[in-house]
Amino acid sequence: NRMYLVCPMNTSAHVDPQKSGHEVWEEFSQSFTPAVREVVEFAKKIPGFRDLSQPDQVSLLKAGTFEVLVVRFASLFDVKDRTVTFLGGKKYSVDALRAMGAGDLLNSMFDFSEKLINLGLSEEEMSLFTAVVLVSADRSGIENVNSVEALQETLIRALRSLITKNHPNESAIFTKLLLKLPDLRSLNNMHSEQLLAFKVH
C-alpha cells in the first residue's frame, strides 16, 4: 500500500496503489535502467577502467553507481525554486516531497547539489570529477585494491592539473572537490538505509 516513490530516478513520485510491486518496479526501471547503463558506458570510457578485472569493474560500478548518479543528476535539484524534477519530467516542491515522507536525505541531496553546482565546473571538469567519484567508490568488494588505487591516483592527478590550468588562482576548487567524496559516501549510506525498506521481488 506504498503510495509514493520519492526518488527522482522514477518517472514520477506517485505510485498507483492498485499496481503490483512488479508493475511498480517495471515503471521505475524504465527510467532507472537507462540511467545505470549510461553510468556503465561512461565508465568504459575512463582510461584504465577496462584494464581492471571484470569482477572489480562490476564491484566498483555496484558500489559507485549511486554516487555517480548523484553528481550526474545534481541539476534535478533546483535550489532557487526548491523543487526536484523527476526523470519523467514532473517537478515537485520540497514541501510536497516532505508531505510524501521525504526527510533528511532530501535536505542533504539539496545541500550537496547546491555546493557542487556553485563550483561552476566545465563539462570536462565535471566528467573527470565523476570518473574520480566512481573509482573512489567503496572497495570492500574489490579483489585487486592496488590497481584501483593506482587508477584513482592517476585520475586525481589529472583532475588537479585540469583544475589548476583552468582556475589558476582558485586552488580551493580542487580541495572542495575532494571533500565531496566523503559527502557522497554519506549520501550513499543514507540512501542505502532507504533501500533496505524497499524490497524488489
Binding site: S29, V36, R37, V40, E41, K44, Q57, V58, L195, L196
Partner: peptide, 27 residues
Amino acid sequence: FSDPASNLGLEDIIRKALMGNLEERQE
C-alpha cells in the same frame, strides 16, 4: 537485506551493460 544495492537488481543491469560489447566483440 545484507546488500541494499542488490535490492534494485543493480548488479544485473551493470553486468549486462558491461558485457554488452563483449558479445559485439565476439560477433
